[in-house]
Design a protein around this nucleic acid. Structure first.
Length: 253
DNA sequence: ATGGTCGATAGTCGA
């Protein structure tokens, strides 16, 4: 099973950049999207259904903001929208598809970069998400937690660790949270296969950052350690340029 | 150099 996670920064903008033909060529079975920035009534279901995908959409209440989706060629046993905590669910951040042998989650974690109140919101989200996954883990098939975590875990995951030592997304608190979260029993799939630096999934639009590869690795597939031996690969698809993020692809037998 | 660039929207806001 091929799984892709991709923060598309507006699904309509991505489609204008030939996202559909790119997606078709990937042959992905399950696609987790973040920042779809579209309401259900405007979602172009038929473009994806023609490729064989069922579309599960969980928009934010506020138009043009946030929102996650899962596209699936495999019929899930169940799809669960949100986590039950309204301050997160109204922002369209958490969605999961449950299959016989695996649960695939699409998560868009808050960014704290815009202002201090949002960083505090993010830190609270992280604590709540930890508890949520700890509880969920006991009740569903092993999870692949895909999404935009808005956190660089280690110095190797960011182009300039010293200058960003206290930047939202790379604070010691967030990095420690990430380590603790993995200790629940998850493996950073990309890092499992690739120990090399300079692999990022997001670049600022400013200062020609992408062309210079001045990026951050903030998009992940965290795979339950009980599943990791079934993982065949996990790669960053940095050639895909429909967004300020790029996709991450894993393949699980 | 105290900026810069996007997307969705119609407010500027959020990233």
């Amino acid at each position: 099973m091929k799984i892709i996670t991709y923060n598309v920064n507006g699904i309509r903008a991505a489609i204008r950049k030939d996202f559909i033909s790119w997606l078709s060529a990937t042959n992905a079975d399950v696609v987790c999207l973040q920042e779809i920035k579209i309401q259900k009534k405007d979602f172009p279901y038929s473009l994806f259904e023609e490729l064989g995908y069922e579309c599960y959409i969980y928009p934010a209440q506020k138009a043009g903001y946030s929102g996650v989706a899962i596209l699936s060629k495999r019929k899930p046993q169940e799809v669960v929208f949100g986590c039950g905590i309204s301050r997160y669910d109204e922002e369209g951040r958490i969605l999961r598809a449950v299959y016989e042998d695996v649960t695939v989650m699409s998560v868009y974690m808050p960014s704290g970069a815009s202002r201090p109140e949002r960083q505090q919101f993010k830190l609270t989200f992280l604590e709540d998400f930890y508890d949520y996954i700890q509880d969920l883990k006991a009740t569903v098939p092993p999870l692949v937690i895909c999404g935009d975590y808005n956190i660089c875990h280690r110095a190797i995951d960011i182009h300039n660790p010293k200058a960003n030592a206290n930047s939202p997304g790379f604070t010691p608190t967030e990095r420690a949270w990430f380590s603790n979260f993995l200790d629940l029993g998850y493996v950073d799939a990309f890092r499992h296969f690739n120990k090399e630096p300079h692999h990022y999934t997001w670049w600022s639009f400013k200062a020609n950052a992408r062309a210079r590869n001045l990026g951050w690795r903030i998009d992940y597939q965290l795979i339950d350690s009980a599943l990791i031996e079934r993982a065949q690969k996990c790669v960053i698809l940095s050639e895909a340029k429909h967004s300020d993020h790029c996709p991450v692809l894993s393949e699980i037998d």
